[in-house]
Nucleic acid binder design. Structure first.
Length: 373
RNA sequence: GCUGGAAUCGUCUAGUGGCAAUGACAAGAGACUGUAAAUCUCUCGGCUUCGGCCUUCGUAGGUUCGAGUCCUACUUCCAGCA
C-alpha cells in the first residue's frame, strides 16, 4: 500500500508526504505533464532545477511510441527518461475524450493511432499491463470520460468507469503480486472519480472508488473551474483522508490550484503551463501576458521581477519577445522553464501557507493581484 | 543603342475585360486546463449611420457600359545582342 503521511490538516486542505520507490512528494505538489516521457521543451535537469517533484506520462502515447516493452527493457520510465524522481502515468482514458473515432464497449476501447491510423485497443487489463511495463510509481485506473455533459451520458460513463475500476484493481493486484515475487519496485493504483458536473454522481463515484480500496484517487473529467470547488468539497469529504488525491488535468489557471488545495487535493497535473509557454503566454503575478505583443519589444525588465527561475534571473522581456518573434527554440525553452517554475512555486507556496495557517491570506492576495479583482 | 520581357497591398506572388483584387510571409490581436497543440482562430487600403462610399495594380493618355487585364507614349528594371 502506498504510504502517505498527512502532516497538517486545515479543513479539507492538508499538507503531506507521498512516499514512492523513487522518492517523496511533498504535497500539495504540481506534477509536470510529460506525456511522451518528456516535458516538452525541457530537459529533466531543467525540470529538477526548477523544483519539480514528479512528472506524469501518458500510457496511450507511450504504447504508440516507443512501446511499453521497450520502456520496461530500459528499466522503466524513470531510468528511460533519466527522471530519477516519482512518476505517474495516466491510463489512456483521456484519449477516449480527446481522439476522434473512438469505439467504446464494455470490453474496452478501440482507437485509431493518430500517427499511422493503425487500430489499437485499450482495456482495463491492457492499460494496467502497459502501465506496469512503463513502470511509473503511480498509475491511473482506465476510466471513461464522457464527451457530453448530458446527465444520462455522464451516468453511463461513470458506471462504466466503476466496472472498469474493479477490473483494473484485479489486474493491478495480479501484476503487483508477480512483481513482488520478482523483487521489483512496488507500483500503485489510483481510482478515478467521475460524475461530471453532477454532485450526486460525484458523491456516488467517490464512495464507489473508496470501497475498491486503491492506493489513492484521481479526480477526473473536470474541464472548467465552474462549480469545481463545490464538487471537490463533496468528493474529498467522502474519500478517505489517509490516501492521496490527484486532480487530473487542472492547473492552467492559478485559481484552480488554490481551489483544489483548499478542498483537499494533494497533487495536480496540467499541460497548460508548458503549452501556454510554447505559445508565448507567460505567467506573472499580475496575470498572464502574451510576450509576443508589440508592447514588449523594448521592455528591458525581467519577465517577472519576483521570480527565481533561470529565465527571469537572466533575461529581459525584450529578449524573450525577440526570441519568440524570430521563432527560436530557446524562446520555448525559457518560457517553459518560467511557466513550469511559476506553477510549481505557487503550489509550494500554497503548501507552506497551509502549514503556517496563512492559506486564506495568501490565496486572497495572490488572486486579487493575479486577476485584478 | 537595338530586340525581347517585366512593373500588383511592407515583401514575394495570383490574376488575360465585371476586382478592393489570390496565396504565402511579415505585421497586429486572441484562444489554449489527465497534450493528435513549437498548435489553432481572427484582423490586415481608407471611411462607414454596416447599406455602402471613396482611393488603389510604375506614370500619362486612349479604347470600352466596364481596364490590373486591350492600345499608345514615357519611366524604371531584367535578359540577349551590339
Amino acid at each position: 500500500m502506498l504510504k502517505f503521511d498527512v502532516t497538517k490538516k486545515s479543513g479539507l486542505a492538508r499538507v503531506g508526504v507521498i512516499h514512492t520507490p523513487h522518492g517523496d512528494i511533498h504535497t500539495p505538489a504540481f506534477v509536470g505533464a510529460a506525456t511522451r516521457a518528456t516535458v516538452k521543451a525541457l530537459t529533466m535537469k531543467e525540470m529538477n532545477d526548477l523544483g519539480s517533484q514528479a512528472i506524469l506520462a501518458n500510457t496511450y502515447h507511450l504504447v504508440l511510441r516507443p512501446g511499453t516493452e521497450l520502456i520496461k527493457k530500459a528499466g522503466g520510465l524513470a531510468e528511460f527518461s533519466s527522471w530519477h524522481k516519482p512518476t505517474f502515468t495516466d491510463s489512456g482514458g483521456f484519449q477516449i475524450f480527446s481522439l476522434p473515432n473512438v469505439k467504446i464497449s464494455e470490453a474496452g476501447v478501440k482507437f485509431k493511432s493518430h500517427i499511422d491510423g493503425a487500430s489499437l485497443e485499450l482495456s482495463p487489463e491492457t492499460s494496467m499491463q502497459a502501465q506496469w511495463n512503463i513502470g511509473a510509481d503511480i498509475h491511473m485506473a482506465f476510466d471513461h470520460l464522457a464527451k457530453s455533459e448530458n446527465r444520462h451520458d455522464m451516468e453511463k460513463a461513470m458506471e462504466r468507469t466503476h466496472a472498469w475500476l474493479k477490473r483494473c484493481k484485479k489486474e493491478h493486484d495480479r501484476l503487483a503480486a508477480a512483481a513482488k515475487i520478482n523483487g521489483e519496485n512496488e507500483q500503485y493504483l489510483y481510482a478515478v472519480v467521475q460524475g461530471g458536473t453532477f454532485n450526486d454522481l460525484r458523491a456516488e463515484s467517490a464512495r464507489f472508488c473508496a470501497d475498491v480500496d486503491p492506493d489513492g484517487f484521481g479526480i477526473g473529467g473536470v474541464f472548467t473551474a465552474d462549480g469545481m470547488a463545490e464538487m471537490l468539497k463533496t468528493v474529498n469529504s467522502i474519500l478517505p483522508e489517509n490516501k492521496p488525491r490527484h486532480l487530473l488535468g487542472m492547473g492552467e489557471e492559478p485559481i484552480d490550484l488554490f481551489d483544489g488545495a483548499e478542498n483537499g487535493c494533494d497533487t495536480f497535473d496540467c499541460v497548460g503551463p508548458t503549452r501556454m509557454a510554447r505559445n508565448g503566454s507567460l505567467y506573472t503575478l499580475d496575470g498572464r501576458i502574451n510576450i509576443k505583443n508589440a508592447k514588449f519589444r523594448e521592455d528591458f525588465t525581467p519577465l517577472m521581477a519576483d521570480c527565481d527561475c533561470e529565465c527571469c534571473k537572466n533575461y529581459t522581456r525584450a529578449y524573450l519577445h525577440h526570441l519568440f518573434k524570430t521563432d527560436e527554440i530557446t524562446a520555448k525553452v525559457l518560457a517553459s522553464i518560467h511557466n513550469e517554475r511559476f506553477v510549481v512555486r505557487t503550489v509550494d507556496n500554497i503548501r507552506a501557507a497551509i502549514m503556517n495557517d496563512t492559506f486564506f491570506e495568501y490565496k486572497k492576495s495572490f488572486l486579487t493581484r493575479y486577476y485584478h479583482k
